[in-house]
Design a protein around this nucleic acid. Structure first.
Lengths: 346, 346
DNA sequence: CTGTTAGCGCCTTCAT
DNA sequence: ATGAAGGCGCTAACAG
């Protein structure tokens, strides 16, 4: 392993000079450009790579961050992969290292807590959608002087930077996409009460813009995150007699199940009913009809979260960012080829 | 941040004693158990966590490994996720850090090469199925004194430990599973020439064991990894008039496409034909008929790869391991009396 | 049983 | 324009 002192000896100069030249921080010093170049050349030639530990010892920075990911949520959504991809790409820029931990319930978070220490890492990114309250744990971590940034739907607290998705825009983008593709009666599947559901707000806005009346029959409320009841819900929607020509699902997984129910009931997709989900998951391309989806740009958002963390590590004020979603249009919302087909009554 | 010297001062003992007690490496020294306990108690109470950088500087170990993953291969296979999961779980045991990099072609490997340095990490795990020759690059890394372990189908070279899948067993397990579920005429879809295909060998062995004759009409050879030709292949198999009641696919993605083609042709799954793929990917559960699959136990295998790497880091000889696959039985190979999805739905 | 010392490789302040 | 010195936190010889 070649060290600074090797280069210094080689060239008959002092270690400090080499250090200053190679780090580019000359301080009060100056060098003859010619010497500087010789130093750099020798370093390159010898394949000099600074020893991060030594640097860390001096700077007090570990050159590493923690990445704690909640596994809660369906597997196969591709979220975890996108997330890690974004994080690692961002960290690679500075060759930062990471401590990656997955958790799904509260006891699982214990190892994360243990690792969240200044002597091991410089800060922590927490991502996913944990179903327990993380706030006290994050406070603990902050209390140790370890900065935290989150990638949640909603920020945990003002001092913790967060990169979220604009859920209102998700509902809006999905609904608007359906309208643009010719739908005049889009339905919405949702879980929480409409009053508190941001996507519902976006759905309403898109309808209003298009001059389409809001019909409660087209609001399909789920009681649980499990997809088991979905086919029934679709049946009920069809049986209601209320015409509909589009469905905004809450996820791609839901979307896939709904597709199956629709096809099973003899409804053609996208001709009779257009379908759009959320997540832009790999499933979209595995479905018999490829599914359109609203993408939360998770990869990009994960990279953003890392940058938000780095900002607070550098002492800058915490920022909260909402990233706008994009639509990945696929077969399930393809424009009806024969003009605008009036929604047939089922 | 509490240091060893803080504890030492607190208790009026020397730093080295504290160091020895806390690290458990007493060397030539001895301590009164009572004193040792007081030291440990104080450390616990103060929340002492050793500074890894300082330790690294001394030991020359970075307490970090590189994890370089080839992205080649279909997205949505869940491989990357399983892999990272296994690696991070193993590293968490010792709070090791990682440098995670994805690559898919040769230029992409450049950053990996740059990071693979003793001053940044202690060793490197390379996983996936790169389609270019990694050998020279791995040699370069080894040349720097950085140990490497791979998670490939076949080892790159004797000195590089590898955790592979026993592909012969994959073919055998899949075929045998079909036979056990009542198939008497299983077909095989494969890519390379039968002569060099290990899975084909396993397929043959399973047939032989079951006393089923090998029929070339049931060997369906693909020219490319793209699934586009698969439906044609299925058509051809059906048109050949050669009876078949099972299919071993090369992947779950293939399997999903084949399922669609079968259902489309009015073939009932699993009643008429049973279907099994490889990978145990999330797709299996998204298919209209849930797909059985042979699992390579990627999560476990990834953890194993890390252990193999740690062994060579510790100076032990490199080991090559082949892990046996397991079968995840689902609907697509259910015993025939179970109801099947009506193909008319598609 | 306990303490002293030197050094891992790098960076920065201060002196030359 | 360059170099010397000290120290980041920890460990392991070696002396007491």
């Amino acid at each position: 392993m070649v060290r600074i002192s090797d280069i210094a000896e080689d060239l008959g100069v002092s270690r400090s000079l080499v250090s200053k030249v190679l780090s580019g921080k000359m301080g009060q010093s100056t060098v003859r450009p010619e010497l500087a170049e010789r130093i750099r050349a020798r370093a390159r030639q010898l394949g000099y790579v600074p020893n991060v530990s030594a640097k860390s010892l001096f700077t007090g920075r570990q050159h590493a961050i923690g990445v704690f990911i909640s596994r809660h949520g369906q597997p196969g959504s591709g979220l975890v992969e996108a997330l890690i991809d974004g994080v690692s790409a961002e960290l690679a820029k500075t060759q930062q290292r990471m401590i990656l931990q997955f958790f799904h319930d509260e006891p699982d978070f214990e190892p994360c807590l243990a690792a969240a220490h200044r002597n091991l890492l410089d800060g922590v990114v927490v991502a996913g959608a944990p179903y327990f309250d993380l706030k006290p744990h994050l406070k603990t971590i902050l209390g140790r002087g370890v900065p935290v940034a989150t990638m949640f739907d909603t920020p945990v607290s003002p001092e913790i930077p967060n990169a979220g998705i604009d859920q209102t825009e998700v509902g809006y983008a999905a609904t608007r996409h359906l309208v643009e593709r010719g739908c005049r009666a889009p339905a919405l599947v949702f879980i929480s009460r409409p009053e508190v559901n941001l996507r519902y707000a976006g759905y309403c806005r898109a309808l209003k813009e298009a001059g389409i009346p809001l019909r409660s029959e087209r609001l399909c409320r789920l009681r649980t995150y499990e997809g088991a009841k979905l086919p029934d819900l679709v049946q009920a929607l069809i049986a209601s007699g209320e015409p509909f020509d589009g469905i905004v699902a809450e996820s791609d997984r839901q979307s896939a199940i709904i597709l199956r129910a629709l096809l099973g009931a003899g409804v053609r997709v996208p001709r009779d009913v257009k379908l759009i989900g959320v997540d832009d998951a790999p499933v979209c391309e595995f479905s018999p009809v490829h599914l359109s989806s609203v993408s939360g740009q998770d990869r990009r958002r994960a990279a953003l979260t890392v940058r938000l963390l780095q900002e607070v590590i550098e002492g800058k004020p915490p920022r909260h960012v909402l990233t706008p979603p994009t639509v990945s249009a696929r077969e399930s919302t393809a424009a009806s080829d024969v003009g605008s087909v009036a929604p047939s009554a089922f």
